[in-house]
Write a protein that binds this DNA or RNA. Structure first.
Lengths: 634, 634
DNA sequence: TTGTCTCCCAGTGGGAGACAA
DNA sequence: TTGTCTCCCACTGGGAGACAA
């Protein structure tokens, strides 16, 4: 019912920031001003919003941070999962060139799944019937979530990111998102507490001073900057939720090539893992989990069913003109036109007939802002000529197709591996054509019992015996050593005077910053033995909880046929590892690797509601959810 | 030939530090004193040692850091690979509880492999014959590598890690490892340049002052501390190589539970990946890569063939007494006695008959220093009663065994999955007994072409537009933002005076430091536009190179039957993610995730020689290599 | 309205000897 | 011989208004 409330209860769909009209007074919005315990300004208790609203706020913040193009399916959505794309994502993460020899699994190139649960971590269950829903069980996309939440983003200026001084608050941001100051006093100021996507709370001093007067965020800002490793050009997002709570998000400029050596298992083992997981899930009817980062891969590999079907209903031909949407400056969507110059399987051996990146394209004009792929998938583009619809009912996602034989060698020698081959399935795979995609899901003969997905959620554990750092004064947890970093020592060239001493630089190779994101400075244990560890605070992080009581039932209610869709707060990922189009979604993601124990209790999972309503969204993932208040200061 | 030289050319095997007798004069060892460019002390050019020596030095440093119990096989060694153990390692990394449902692959529980190449990244090729070597091709373990290298380690005191002042150098360390100072001057001092395991160069000021006089390392020390995130109790290792080069290593105390959410793919996909990789390699006769961290898992899962065979030659029974070696204080090996209290398959369904952790044990005395497992593998222990040898030729590692059937469900319902099952192989697996382990490697019918393993080596790329930090003055690369961290702002309780300001702490939950190892403080782009980026230096990091000309030939020379064994410099791993017994081997490992592009050029791979000599080491991996100079100051 | 600069000054921490274990 | 402490002081950077775009 909470879901229903949230989905149905709001109207309006626009891009204008809806300023809470009843909130013109200070009182109504100072729920965002948490008591900070030092008595300065704590005029309001922590007015806890109900869970639904909190979820919603985080959902909006997530999308505000993620940018306009990032679409995450909702619970209830039918999607097509492309293992190829998944492997590309992993390749991107593991710096592989994708040339690893992989066996050919007897795995369809696309797998129809239903989304059950979104938790920033994706778990899919292959549909037993791979031929799409019957009309009556047609997916019913959710009503758009309307929201009165308001956010503004500001691109950080050099002054904002300098070590001297704080953050210059655009007036509209202050007016719309921050609690109003008492302008009657000499120097109006207050303390703000804002939550980030991890639920971490950051306190800031908000002051109105200077000549001419302006809004500034001073204390706490540099800690935030450092912790998030923000640079000039990155954006900071302030969002005021319906509950009045203030939230901060960030969005990195970083077009920097991400690279990661995940080094837990080898890259090719990961590739194997992807295929084997999907294969296992398909053949046993069990769920599987996907870490989905639509902003990571050049293309999203989980495609809404309707969007996919729409693309299969068209024929594509060389010479065809199309448009494709990219993200431009300031969250603007930007369309580029191009021409299809080739159509061919990207991997005829392993994924014969797959539409994945099947279209070779040429772009009309070069662009500096977007990196545009040379190959796209049909559902990525909108044809701009009227293409003739195919004479096919959209229903037949699948017809009887000859089985695919297995070869453990990926080579065209077509070596067969008896160990991997399925008994009685040895007809060579027919090379698919774009029209009339066919496949057959192979025998699903036994299913393991369904287990609830293991959501690995970070949870605090103790870190006593440390003194409190300045950062800890602004972020409301004992900060571990690695966060306990100032910007370090800087050999300053900034204003002409050079600060040097003792040992000079030896020459150094040009290193990427990301190359060093380990080895980060840390505080050290203080020499003095009288460290007063009793000052470490103990309040729980009040992140929107993973509703433990919901997760399991949810999965169980769908039973074996459900698909789970979740997203994990991967607080551990290095955002530099995120690719060029990296947006800081739920990974606004601290920059270095954190080790997160799965102890329980608190959790950073942000559950998103299960969709049940029946309005049909023709394409894309509930896009309108994110269109409420996309203003952008600066 | 270089390998031969290195292996044969040295004699002597002892624990005493061999001080280079010809090096009493300053000259001979000041090769380690690099010109720093500021004219202070740069009396010697960078006397580059030959590659072999460099490799050897790094090898020794690696083992000095890794501790006495960490054994890495050498090229040429025959080893048994246990997928179970590999999965445990991944579980440990991914915080899984190991309860994921995994399919039963048709994969033997142990796989005989030969080691060809060690590069801090392990690639194995299953032997076609799984029955062990014939007598004439009996493995010929290498001669121990003798070395005149000398190292000392010092456990860091609170003073060493305090923000005030530097590192107090034990006299013996200074005498044995550091270049001698010119004592004729008023205040003897010099600059040191030391390489760490990544090949990164750290410069330190070494001074002899105070009253009474003592050796100190001042400038550069705190940068090193911060970058490595060292704390009181961690150890710092100084090693002088034969070439005279100075090297630093660290060894963390951190018994801290490691936790990692590797979040590239899901944990269960990783498990699948391990099994599928090994299976694919076994069935196609190709190589596979293993990230081997013997200090990560409670037990090493790559066991020397001889050690394994020795263990199979004994019978184990309940009540049997044994000893097992653990690491105690100060690199001391420490033996604990215990009793076998049970013998049973740890996973009778999937790994029936496997010796992996087959022995349930009880320890005689509790220990605070070591965490001791409740289950061990036979090769982990030394029986202390005389056990009757089994009447079996050691030759038959394998006999004809009934094939193992496949079930994709891990359940005892013994569900079968026709998709995964091998044709004609459906006899239920016989439950093995410890005596006479039997198995048969299933048909190897086709092999893919051998490709050289893809060594993902980090390589620098540009990071211009930043001013040089103080850290960069001591570490000879432009430091990326995340390294550019001082210990941050500290609310000081250390000496009674509390430093506080502005915004007070809000209460916070007890958080693990590792939970935050992302979000680490960073420097920010300086406001001033006149950043003089031309000051960024461009010298290449002169890490011992991955000998590109060697890697491929090596693999090819062995052709299809070889096994590759390597270790990667996983500069990316968060060492906090390393488990309790974590030693900082090649992962002395900066603490946070770095993103490392694979651009080429320079490389951090540390190739280790291929072993070809013929002295037989009965057990363990070339252990004597690390016993040359294990002194430990303090 | 807001970005940049410079000034002020408190806080931090590197580096030294004193002193003690 | 070496660990701890305290003192000194240079440097860093938060925070303010001035000023200009």
């Amino acid at each position: 019912m909470r879901e229903r409330e949230r989905k149905m209860g709001r109207g309006g769909k626009g891009k204008a920031c809806r300023v809470n009209s009843s909130g013109g007074d200070t009182e109504d919005r100072t729920g965002i001003v948490d008591g900070t315990g030092d008595g300065l300004i704590s005029n309001n208790t922590n007015k806890k919003a109900n869970q639904g609203d909190v979820d919603n706020v985080y959902y909006e913040l997530w999308h505000a941070c993620a940018g306009p193009l990032v679409k995450v399916p909702q619970a209830g959505d039918l999607v097509i999962y492309f293992p190829q794309g998944h492997m590309e994502q992993v390749e991107a993460y593991t710096c592989q060139d994708g040339k690893t020899e992989m066996p050919i699994y007897n795995l369809p190139y696309k797998i129809l799944c239903k989304v059950v649960y979104v938790q920033l971590k994706v778990t899919l269950l292959p549909e037993v019937k791979q031929d799409g829903p019957s009309p009556e069980e047609k997916v019913s996309p959710v009503l758009s979530q309307k929201s009165s939440a308001c956010y503004h983003s500001k691109k950080l200026t050099p002054s904002d990111t300098s070590t001297h001084g704080g953050f210059s608050v655009p007036k509209r941001l202050a007016d719309d998102c921050l609690p109003h100051l008492d302008m009657s006093v000499e120097i109006p100021q207050q303390e703000l507490v804002a939550r980030d996507l991890h639920g971490f709370r950051w306190s800031f001093k908000h002051i109105y001073r200077g000549n001419p007067k302006r809004h500034l965020i001073t204390s706490g800002w540099s800690q935030f900057l450092n912790a998030k490793k923000l640079n000039t050009g990155d954006a900071c997002i302030f969002l005021r939720g319906e509950d009045g709570g203030l939230h901060v998000g960030i969005r990195r400029l970083t077009k920097q090539k991400h690279t990661a050596s995940a080094s837990v298992i080898s890259g090719s083992s990961m590739q194997h893992g992807i295929l084997a997981s999907a294969f296992h899930a398909v053949s046993t009817g069990t769920m599987f989990t996907v870490y989905y980062r639509p902003w990571t891969s050049p293309s999203a590999f989980i495609v809404p069913y309707d969007q996919y079907m729409k693309s299969t209903a068209l024929s594509y031909s060389v010479g065809m003109r199309f448009k494709m949407t990219f993200e431009g400056e300031e969250c603007q969507e930007q369309k580029f036109a191009g021409t299809v110059v080739g159509i061919e399987d990207i991997d005829p051996i392993r994924w014969s007939g797959s539409e994945w990146r099947r279209l070779e394209v040429q772009w009309d004009a070069p662009s500096e802002t977007s990196v545009r792929p040379g190959r796209v998938s049909p559902w990525d583009i909108e044809p701009t000529e009227v293409s003739k619809k195919k004479n096919m009912p959209t229903k037949n996602l699948q017809k009887r197709a000859p089985p695919i034989y297995l070869s453990s060698s990926g080579h065209s020698t077509a070596g067969r591996d008896d160990l991997l081959q399925c008994p009685g399935e040895s007809t060579p795979q027919r090379h698919g054509v774009l029209k009339g995609q066919e496949e057959r899901i192979l025998g699903v003969n036994e299913r393991g019992p369904l287990r609830p997905p293991m959501f690995l959620v970070p949870s605090p554990h103790l870190d006593w015996g440390r003194t409190k750092t300045r950062l800890e004064k602004h972020m409301h947890f004992p900060i571990p050593d690695s966060l306990n970093c100032g910007p370090g020592s800087i050999l300053t060239f900034s204003d002409g005077k050079r600060v040097g001493s003792g040992i000079s630089n030896m020459c150094s190779p040009p290193f990427t910053s990301s190359e060093f994101h380990d080895g980060v400075g840390a505080s050290r244990t203080l020499a003095a033995p009288n460290v007063n560890s009793s000052n470490a605070c103990t309040q729980e992080r009040t992140v929107p909880n993973a509703k433990d009581e919901t997760e399991v039932p949810l999965a169980q209610q769908y039973g074996r046929k459900i698909t789970i869709f979740g997203v994990e707060v991967d607080i551990c990922k290095n955002p530099l590892e995120l690719p060029s189009q990296q947006v800081t979604t739920f990974g606004e993601l601290p920059k270095s690797c954190a080790a997160l124990p799965t102890t329980s209790q608190s959790s950073t999972s942000i559950p998103v509601q299960v969709s049940e309503s029946s309005k049909s969204a023709s394409e894309g993932f509930s896009e309108n959810q994110r269109k409420n208040c996309c203003t952008s200061a600066n």
